[in-house]
Amino acid sequence: MKTPTKLIALIVTLLACAFLLIPIIQSVQAGLTVNYFRGLSSGLTLKWVGEVWELYSGSIFLSIRLALACLAVTLILGVPAAYALARNPGRASRVLEEFTSLPLAIPGLALALALLQLYGTYQGFRTNWSFILVGHVLYTLPFMVRSVLSVLATIDLRSLEEGAASLGARPARRFVDIVVPNALPGILAGALTVVTLSIGEFNLTWMLHTPYLKTLPVGLADSYASMRLEVASAYTLVFFVMIVPLLMAMQWASARAQRNMQ
């Protein structure tokens, strides 16, 4: 079985892994060593992580708060909308779905410019964290809608609802009793995607943030520009610790939602 083709493929795969993994290891190492240039021999320390916590814990908490608020909003806006789109697969639905998906395609920077020019002058809004929230919802909403929609598209929603209706359930009741429970795998996968993306969102946030409202990735950019390498690395490490389990959970949930469909 050891063909040359296979060997080349293995080498390419390993090199790609190395390219992606090595800087991650470096950053973990740098965040935990006393002096990165002297290497591990200088000893391990949590000093830099502590420093990050002192400097940036506000940013971290703001990001968590934003992610949870973003999740709440995308659930409220996205789940009923996905249901409506699934029930009404007409031309108008396609257009609306396509339009709400624009933030997947248009760079965050352009969206941020658009938001800033329309709402930037409303000081109360501009300086409130809800301004950043709008950006995050804009960016993550399509993921929620699509995730729920893809699960709903695989079940015979119409028949299930007719079944519930024949037993006396009204539309709102059917939504709660039948639609939401059967869409749960999609909702879960969508929710994890929304939280993961919101915590890592930079392009929109950088334009929308104010000096008093720095999210985790904005703080990261800040530390890359102005802090010593060990602090920047320690902060990146904190970010990894938050984002990697979320990413794994998200991939698990998406795979599960997809399995359910088969």
Partner: peptide, 20 residues
């Protein structure tokens, strides 16, 4: 490993390149 960077914002990716 190959799917890890999916969740990294561009700033972090930039930092990875700086580390390299």
């Amino acid at each position: 490993i190959l799917t890890l960077p999916l969740a990294f914002p561009g700033v972090v990716v930039g930092f990875m390149i700086i580390l390299l």
